[in-house]
């Protein structure tokens, strides 16, 4: 059983995890930079990352949370406009639900499939922290 950790501990462990996946212990990982766009992780690496989180922290990060929909209570369909892009209302909700990602990146024209490209260590840190707090409450 994992005891409640503070955000710095969680973040440091996640940074170690990214370094393990990249097999590069010298690389400096900025928690605010995108795991995919800035550090070259791909979708399988993100899966690996999520599975490891489950093992290390004993919490599960769901697909809805990774899509930024965790707190919005929106269905997948609600999020989309007629072009299949994330609607303006949903963009505003997303900015609130994943505040760690720069709002400059959550802009008109992005699609749900683009969200994982924006994920960073800071998002995972907060999600894990909240889940651990829930478990211990």
């Amino acid at each position: 059983m994992i005891v409640q950790m503070d955000k710095t501990e969680i973040q440091n462990r996640l940074i170690e995890l990214v370094k393990e996946i990249l097999e590069d212990d010298k690389i400096k990982i900025d928690p605010d930079k995108s795991l995919i766009e800035d550090y070259g992780l791909d979708s399988l690496d993100l899966l690996d990352f999520s599975f490891n989180i489950e093992e290390i922290f004993d919490v599960k990060i769901g697909k809805d949370e990774l899509s930024g929909r965790g707190k919005t209570k929106m269905t997948k369909e609600d999020m989309l406009d007629e072009d299949g892009c994330i609607s303006e209302a949903a963009l505003e909700e997303l900015k609130k639900s994943i505040p760690e990602i720069s709002s400059a990146k959550i802009v008109k024209g992005i699609k749900p499939g683009d969200i994982p490209r924006l994920l960073n260590v800071a998002v995972f840190t907060r999600l894990i922290f909240e889940k651990l707090a829930e478990k211990h409450s």
């Binding site: 996946i21 097999e23 399988l44 690496d45 899966l47 690996d48 599975f51 490891n52």
Partner: peptide, 9 residues
């Protein structure tokens, strides 16, 4: 690229 590690788990 080396395979994702979960393959081995």
């Amino acid at each position: 690229m080396k395979p994702a590690k979960f393959n081995f788990k």
